[in-house]
Each structure stands twice: as structure tokens, then as C-alpha cells.
């Protein structure tokens, strides 16, 4: 990788200040995507601003009946949190299937969500639970957050500080992993919330998105069979060596039905 200046601010405000002062600076959270990218020389930041030393960005707390998770909280901490397991078990299940244990020990929720990798797991939970993304500047509703492949509503200089997940009545997540990379070929998060059914799909499109067809089917009947029977269109879905768009369309229904079956 190319060399860069390295900074380890102690507060989110300092991080934002550093970010504003550098032209080509990048934020590094857990680094699970960024460092491999730098190693492949696919990015050339002038500076890296490491959020790893900012205590205020870490931690899990129960808040207004839901869960608020600091952006720099690792997947392993989410996976093992008794609060998460008690309040939104599906979120702990999702966290326990990200990458591998070593990735989960470093990778962070904020990093994953800010990156909006089309095959990442967390975006499905954020969207599926109708979470709120909190930044150093504002709060962003999940439905307004994911804009495209590696594209989000975050503006220059904006840093995710925490994500608040309201408690659903029931939720479940099921993923079909790429056998080589273990990223999601298709991941489906389903939630029955006071505001209605939410179904979020990751891995299949340019970024996580909600499936109106599946939400409709589950609103009528919250059972695995209700979604398994839905035949989705393959139009616009990702296609690669491991999965064609048609196969992905099929897997969305299957994973949705498994997520419903697993929902608690």
C-alpha cells in the first residue's frame, strides 16, 4: 500500500476536525474492508483517521426500549451482548455470521454501515429494523441512508457515532453466504414492528433495499410459506460467478422464509 499520515484522535469532534483539514483523508474504523483495499492499492488516501481510540463511539445500551450501539462497537461485542440478545436476538444472530471470528473481533458496525458494501450484513438489519443512524451532525432514518453501491447519505466530514435500533415485535435474519468470501450472496432481514412488516435484502442489489413484495406477503400472513411462495423478478439483481440474478431472486424468497421461521 501507499504510505499515508496516521492520526488517532481521542474524540469524534477531533476526528471531524482532522477530516475537514485534510484533502484526501479517510476514516478507518475496524479496517476490515479499508485495509485490504489499501493493500491492493485500490485507494490512496493522504491520511488515515483512526476512530479506534474514541471511547465515546463504543458501547451498547438499552434506550427507549430498543438498543443503541456505538459506531466503533465490534461485531463480536454485538454478538455476545446480553442486552442485544435479550432485546433484538436477530441482531446478535446477524453479527455472529459476519465474516469470521477474527473479522468480528475488529470489524465495527459503524464501519460496515458507512461503507454500504452491497454484500454486507449490517445494512439489512439497519433497514429491516428501521434504525436511526446518528452522526456527528444529525440523525438519518434508515430508509434515507443507503443510496447505492458504496454510497450513503453521509456527507463529507460526517461520521457515524451510533445506531439506534427500535425493538421489533419479532425479527429474524437468514443469509446465504458466498462460499469463498463468506459475504452475503443474499441476506434477508425480516421484522414485524409496531409500524408494520419490514423486509430488507442485502447481497442482491447495489445496496441493501426493502422488498415491497415480501413485505406485502408477510403483512397478510407472517409465515415462512407466505414468502417462500413469492416469485421475485430477477431484473436488476446482481449476477456473478457464484450466483446469477435468477438464482438470487429465488434465494431471496428462500432466505426470507428462513428468516421468518427463525424470527423471535
Amino acid at each position: 500500500m501507499h504510505d499515508f499520515g496516521y492520526h488517532r484522535p481521542a474524540s469524534a469532534a477531533d476526528a471531524a476536525g482532522l477530516l475537514a483539514g485534510k484533502n484526501e483523508a479517510k476514516i478507518v474504523a475496524g479496517g476490515m474492508t479499508l485495509i485490504p483495499t489499501l493493500k491492493q492499492r485500490l485507494a490512496q488516501p493522504s491520511d488515515l483517521i483512526d476512530l479506534g481510540g474514541i471511547a465515546e463511539l463504543k458501547g451498547i445500551k438499552v434506550e427507549s426500549g430498543g438498543i443503541t450501539i456505538g459506531a466503533m462497537t465490534t461485531h463480536a461485542d454485538v454478538e455476545r451482548s446480553t442486552d442485544v440478545r435479550k432485546t433484538i436476538p436477530a441482531l446478535a444472530v446477524l453479527a455472529s455470521g459476519i465474516g469470521d471470528p477474527l473479522v468480528r473481533n475488529r470489524g465495527t458496525m459503524g464501519g460496515s454501515v458507512a461503507n454500504s458494501d452491497p454484500a454486507a450484513d449490517y445494512p439489512a438489519a439497519v433497514l429491516g429494523l428501521g434504525a436511526t443512524v446518528r452522526t456527528n451532525k444529525r440523525e438519518i432514518k434508515a430508509d434515507d441512508f443507503f443510496k447505492g453501491m458504496f454510497e450513503t447519505a453521509l456527507q463529507d466530514g460526517e461520521i457515524i457515532t451510533a445506531i439506534h435500533f427500535p425493538k421489533p415485535e419479532k425479527a429474524g435474519y437468514s443469509k446465504f453466504a458466498n462460499p469463498a468470501s463468506r459475504y452475503a450472496i443474499v441476506g434477508v432481514f425480516v421484522a414485524r414492528t409496531s409500524g408494520g412488516i419490514r423486509v430488507a435484502v442485502t447481497g442482491a442489489g447495489p445496496c441493501a433495499y426493502r422488498s415491497k413484495e415480501l413485505e406485502g406477503a408477510l403483512s397478510a400472513n407472517f409465515t415462512p410459506d407466505a414468502v417462500k411462495a413469492v416469485k421475485l423478478s430477477a431484473d436488476g439483481l446482481n449476477s456473478d460467478l457464484h450466483a446469477t440474478a435468477e438464482y438470487r431472486a429465488h434465494l431471496i424468497s428462500v432466505m426470507a422464509s428462513r428468516a421468518v421461521a427463525a424470527a423471535s
Binding site: 488515515l48 477474527l102 473479522v103 473481533n105
Partner: peptide, 14 residues
């Protein structure tokens, strides 16, 4: 905690 030392900068382990 077990981590991949190829996906971490030395400065991050300071």
C-alpha cells in the same frame, strides 16, 4: 482477542 495481523496497522496496535 484473536485478530488478523495482516489486516491491522502496526500503529493501530500502539
Amino acid at each position: 482477542r484473536a485478530v488478523k495481523s495482516c489486516t491491522m496497522l502496526a500503529v493501530q496496535a500502539n
